[in-house]
């Protein structure tokens, strides 16, 4: 350290020039690195979320394709929720609904044909001695799981323990779609105006019924866990069964409404958190449309929360649809109102 230098300069000068960091230099470097990491970390988290959103979009795209393949075979979309009426008996029975939802009909079209063979549509979804129905209903599928959703793979649902949970539900109506349960009644398609419905009103939609245009109508919506005060939701892949024998209620396990704004939780006053679309993607949710396309819709989309009152002001027609918001227009298949680009 103290050897003489070639230039023969005094030792004091040599000590001055020692190659080392001062404390200030070190602190400045640490501060700069800290700032850079602070800038970088949120970007990494956002990149992760973007990847999860893309994966979710891919799920909805595949569900949309499966719905179209189903439509090619049957010339209509699947039944929304098999709620009342026997499958191969009296179709007007006020009981007997097996509880199966639309996604069960898609099984052969998402390469789950073996699962489809295991279940018997004549028996309730919760049945587990004669058929494999309950076992089918307990089988989770990645296709029905958004990576951002915090839901567990299985959770009890009505009469089905450990039912497979879902991040996606069928679009039922822009209004509250569950009252008026008289079996065999003529379906009021202005009130129950979405693609999917319960069997008891006897309406099954095909592409020809989507008169607002397939690219303007939602068919499958995203849902999120933690909507209810109990920090859960009811969204399930295969079925909604309140009791073992028949479906009764529980359509909100497979179908969704447009009357309640996206991401509106029960804690914030939503009276029907189980019928409300939502997601953990910041600022909105993913929606599958009838043409098979998938869009991210902002949660601040125009929404007027219009409730059904009577047939004279369906879609707020007397006011030219002013009180029937864009979000609701996306749910109804033939409201005749204009939908702006989303």
């Amino acid at each position: 350290m103290f050897e003489p230098t070639h230039s023969g300069r005094p030792q004091v000068r040599k000590l001055d020039r020692q190659p080392a960091f001062t404390l200030v230099e070190l602190l400045v470097v640490i501060a700069i690195i800290g700032v850079l990491i602070a800038l970088l970390l949120p970007a990494v988290q956002q990149a992760r979320e973007a990847a999860r959103r893309m994966s979710c979009s891919n799920n909805l795209k595949n569900i949309g394709l499966a719905l179209h393949t189903y439509h090619d075979t049957h010339n209509c979309f699947p039944i929304g929720h098999h709620y009342q009426g026997h499958w191969d008996g009296d179709p007007l029975s006020s009981e007997g609904g097996t509880g199966f939802g639309w996604a069960t009909g898609l099984l052969p079209y998402i390469e789950q044909g073996n699962q489809f063979e295991r279940f018997d549509s004549r028996y309730p979804a919760g049945e587990n001695t004669i058929t494999g129905n309950r076992t089918v209903c307990q089988t989770p599928l990645n296709l029905f799981s958004c990576p951002s959703d915090t839901k567990p793979a299985q959770y009890d649902e009505g009469a089905i323990p450990n039912a497979a949970t879902s991040s996606y539900q069928g679009a039922a109506s822009a209004y509250d779609s569950y009252p008026n349960n008289a079996v065999g009644s003529v379906p009021n398609r202005d009130r129950f105006n979405g693609v999917f419905d319960r069997t008891n009103r006897g309406f099954i939609a095909g592409l020809k019924h989507i008169q607002d245009g397939t690219s303007n109508t939602i068919i499958v919506a995203e849902t999120k866990w933690e909507m209810d005060d109990n920090r859960r939701n009811r969204s399930r892949i295969y079925a909604g069964n309140d009791i073992v024998d028949y479906a009764k209620g529980a359509s909100n396990a497979v179908l969704i409404n447009g009357q309640w704004a996206m991401n509106w939780t029960q804690k914030q006053g939503n009276p029907q958190p189980h019928r409300t679309a939502g997601s953990f993607h910041p600022g909105g949710a993913m929606f599958g449309f009838c043409d098979g396309s998938v869009h991210f819709v902002s949660e601040t989309i125009e929404h007027t929360a219009t409730a059904w009152t009577n047939a004279n002001n369906a879609y707020d027609a007397p006011n030219g649809g002013v009180g029937y918001g864009v979000y609701q227009r996306l749910f109804s298949i033939s409201d005749g109102l204009i939908v702006p680009e989303i």
């Binding site: 704004a261 914030q268 006053g269 939503n270 601040t300 989309i301 125009e302």
Partner: peptide, 29 residues
């Protein structure tokens, strides 16, 4: 009770009353 304010533009704001009937509106999360 659920209180809903609908402006006709963007989304509505909602709130729920507590035991004293008091509420506070939420727009988004």
């Amino acid at each position: 009770a659920t209180v809903l304010f609908v402006p006709g533009k963007s989304r509505p704001s909602g709130g729920r009353t507590d035991e004293n009937g008091h509420y506070e509106l939420h727009y988004t999360d």
